[in-house]
Design a protein around this nucleic acid. Structure first.
Lengths: 203, 203
DNA sequence: TATTGGGGTGACCGATCGGTACATTAAAGA
DNA sequence: TCTTTAATGTACCGATCGGTCACCCCAATA
């Protein structure tokens, strides 16, 4: 017993944002986007990063943790960016254009991660699924707020929440056909979608 | 050798549309929608249908076959219905409304199957994935045709194909938030979405 | 030189994976 | 009654699953 005067377990906290960890997150996102969370094994993630299973688990705590971090990372960015736009731009129309472009650019630039974020929520356990759905709901609230402001200014008409969900689905579903190297770049698509939204909500 | 005068292997074709098989398809669709194709085991499908693995494999040929049949069944219906609307209705605006309602009603009435159809394509092997994507493309062609007709009649403006993909994504992504027993029924949502589409494409 | 500790290896754990083989049951037809 | 056949249960196959474990390597420090 007395030899436990040294720390009984240092627990070795593996530095939340170590470069190796970021690499793992990135590789895993790409694999999950390709074949789904349950379709990818941990040894496969290890191989793709050049790590054995032991080394892999030195950097992550579980496979599901990996999924959770992937799904939350860029969704949080999206919310932060959205709030910044809400604060810095007051004109409802320009606001909509800025939100639209920001959304499409984020999806396009982090296509694997966003694909996982939109498509693999069901693989999370109940508690974490709730947390991610709450983030989605927070993001929708930003658009909802923006549309309400336009309504208050007399520029927009009221729309049911299902229509807002539909309009956002227009963006969210784009991970299936979006080609980041395609002829139309993300900014152009974002502008085209903004026009659809504006035509839908303008008086 | 001579005793093989009887069929060397009757192969027992398990009646493509046996009631048991339909039940399996239905149960599997629900499970896949809940936890994803790779997240559900075949024994679990057996348990949910009250069948052992042996009995299950008497009705299906492989787990992937199951997925393929689920993804194609109602997508084919959607295409058939869409073509019928294209043939029977010439007014572009009413056509759009009818296509919109039919789509939302099918999604709502077969939510599990459509969820699998929109979300689990990646779990199919290359050949079958191509086949399913081809069905999706066929369905998009119906809307595209309808919009072209409206353009020829001078009622619609031309839109880029990415906008059409986006508008369809509005419907396709609804599997995530749609509640078939919710306050707004599918027909109402279909009408609301039709208005969004019409506002987007009208001159 | 001795000690420490971050980072990594590879064997191993029990459980489950998709799929098959085969015996069995029940009903129908001869 | 005897044979066929649709339908099912069960034991089993090799492979892989997510995760853990004891051990090791090596650079920095004392």
């Amino acid at each position: 017993m007395t030899e436990q005067l040294t720390q009984p377990k240092p627990a070795t906290p593996p530095r939340k944002a170590s470069p190796t960890r970021l690499k793992i997150l990135q590789v895993a996102a790409s694999l999950f986007a390709d074949r789904g969370f349950s379709g990818v094994g941990v040894n496969e993630i290890g191989e793709a990063t050049g790590l054995g299973r032991g080394a892999l688990y030195y950097h992550i705590s579980s496979k599901e943790d990996l999924l959770y971090d992937i799904t939350t990372a860029y969704m949080s960015d999206l919310i932060a960016d959205g709030k910044a736009i809400l604060d810095s731009e007051v004109d409802p129309i320009i606001r909509t254009q800025k939100l639209s472009r920001a959304l499409m650019m984020t999806i396009s630039e982090h296509l694997s991660e966003m694909t996982v974020c939109f498509r693999e929520i069901h693989a999370l356990t109940a508690e974490r699924r709730r947390a991610v759905l709450s983030l989605h709901s927070d993001y929708q609230a930003i658009w909802s707020q923006s549309l309400s402001d336009g309504l208050a200014k007399g520029q927009f008409r009221p729309i049911p929440s299902t229509v807002l969900k539909g309009l956002l689905g227009m963006y969210f579903y784009s991970f299936l056909w979006l080609d980041p190297r395609g002829p139309q770049n993300a900014a152009d698509i974002g502008d085209a979608f903004a026009e659809v939204v504006l035509r839908a909500v303008r008086v």
